[in-house]
């Protein structure tokens, strides 16, 4: 299940849905990203996320199918919010089920790393000088690069 939405989501509901759909899988791993209330320059009063409608959904589906090629997975749920999001609010959710925990942990991390470097989403932060576009981070690219040489691990 993939969703790009303005509204907030209920993390517990997502976990319960994954648990219901797990169908014998022994592991559920979830990741929830929150809006930080600080950055290198100081306090952040919230963010605004712009995206490329259509391509965002397509790229999230592609990321999930790449994950399925690498690990044997059950269910995958990815939610990304767009528009205005306040400090400490939820911004992204990734949930994965698998027979074994290692696959679920790895796939969940792979999906968020891949999303951060390839899904067409752009963040603006509210600073004391107004809204500022966030620059991409080398550490995100390095996190993704770690996966490039991994083959099918399941």
């Amino acid at each position: 299940m993939i969703s790009v939405q303005r509204d907030d989501f209920d993390h517990c509901e997502q976990y319960l849905a994954l648990k219901e759909e797990a169908d014998g899988d022994g592991a559920v791993v979830t990741f929830t990203g929150l809006v930080r209330d600080f950055n290198v320059q100081g306090a952040v009063s919230g963010i605004h996320i712009e995206h490329y409608p259509g391509m965002t959904e397509k790229s999230l589906m592609r990321i999930c199918s790449e994950a399925r090629k690498r690990w044997q997975l059950g269910q995958i749920r990815v939610i990304h919010r767009v528009g205005r999001i306040g400090p400490q609010e939820q911004i992204v959710f990734v949930g994965v089920t698998s027979k074994h925990r290692k696959n679920a942990f790895d796939a969940c991390e792979f999906i968020i790393d891949y999303l951060k470097t390839s899904a067409p989403l752009w963040k603006q932060e509210g600073t004391s000088e107004g809204m500022k576009w966030v620059a991409s981070r080398l550490s995100d690219k390095e996190a993704m690069d770690r996966w490039l040489n991994t083959t099918n691990l399941s």
């Binding site: 992204v92 067409p120 991409s136």
Partner: peptide
């Protein structure tokens, strides 16, 4: 065709 800066979602 689309042109855009490096992505910063997540």
């Amino acid at each position: 065709i689309a042109f855009f800066p490096p992505v910063t979602g997540g």
